[in-house]
Simulated assay, not measured.
Amino acid sequence: MIQKLFSYFIPIKIFKKKSSRSKVIEVTWANGELVLDSENTNYSYGSLQRILRYGLRNIGYKKILEMEHILLLGVAGGSVVKTLVNEIEYKGKITGIEIDPEMIEVANKYFSLNEIKKLDIIIDDAFEFTLKTKEKYDLIIIDIFEDTHMPNFLFEKFFSERVCYLLKDEGFILFNTMILDEAHNVRNRKYISEINSKLFKSKTLPRIEDHNELIIIEKVA
């Protein structure tokens, strides 16, 4: 495909749509691969896929292969799903929660997300879903952005305790956060300090992208 070849020299935008939830959704050929972006940041594939792959590698692919059920809060184009299924060859169940139905339409059309077996996409608010679900999960991936903004509820103690409660013993949370200023650094430190250290181990990973910091929480058996 000629667009793919030219994208190694210059990004080629092939789709752009205004979205009520995400403001703008864009699909672009960049460095030979399709990426999904909002107006100001990468939503799926590209750098975001590298970031979440790095987090999954830190948890351990062998551990992930033994998991039964993974919850993904924030789906966008589904790049982390592709990493789990195509690269790690995870065979268990994945439940993805995405608030923006237009995002899923784009993910299905351009990234064939609807062709992945054992993937259940639910259009819902992540906060509301975590209150309703009766399931327990081996891994919860939190990857929720509104362009460059992260909703405040993600860092509130109530939500933190709820997602920790939804973990099985020896389960993990992989939380992708955006750091744009010192206030965000303070926010992340506060978030980690509030995690119950008797029941959970928490750490941040050294950044591989300037503005993204991964937090990993492990439930101690």
Score class of each variant (00 low, 15 high):
residue 3 Q to M: 13
residue 10 I to W: 14
residue 11 P to T: 14
residue 11 P to Q: 13
residue 19 S to W: 12
residue 38 S to T: 02
residue 39 E to Q: 03
residue 40 N to F: 00
residue 40 N to L: 09
residue 42 N to C: 12
residue 46 G to H: 04
residue 54 Y to R: 11
residue 55 G to N: 07
residue 58 N to D: 13
residue 60 G to S: 01
residue 62 K to P: 06
residue 68 E to P: 09
residue 72 L to Q: 06
residue 73 L to M: 05
residue 84 L to M: 07
residue 85 V to N: 09
residue 90 Y to Q: 06
residue 93 K to A: 14
residue 96 G to C: 10
residue 98 E to L: 01
residue 98 E to Y: 06
residue 105 E to V: 06
residue 108 N to A: 09
residue 112 S to R: 15
residue 120 D to Q: 12
residue 121 I to H: 13
residue 122 I to N: 15
residue 128 E to A: 13
residue 130 T to R: 07
residue 130 T to Q: 02
residue 132 K to F: 03
residue 133 T to R: 09
residue 133 T to F: 04
residue 134 K to H: 06
residue 136 K to V: 01
residue 137 Y to S: 03
residue 137 Y to D: 05
residue 139 L to E: 03
residue 139 L to K: 02
residue 140 I to D: 05
residue 144 I to F: 00
residue 145 F to Q: 00
residue 148 T to F: 08
residue 150 M to R: 04
residue 161 E to M: 07
residue 163 V to S: 05
residue 169 D to L: 11
residue 172 F to Q: 04
residue 175 F to H: 04
residue 186 V to M: 11
residue 188 N to V: 15
residue 194 E to K: 08
residue 195 I to V: 06
residue 195 I to H: 08
residue 197 S to H: 11
residue 197 S to N: 14
residue 199 L to D: 08
residue 203 K to H: 09
residue 206 P to K: 14
residue 210 D to M: 03
residue 214 L to V: 05
residue 218 E to A: 03
residue 219 K to F: 01
residue 221 A to Q: 12
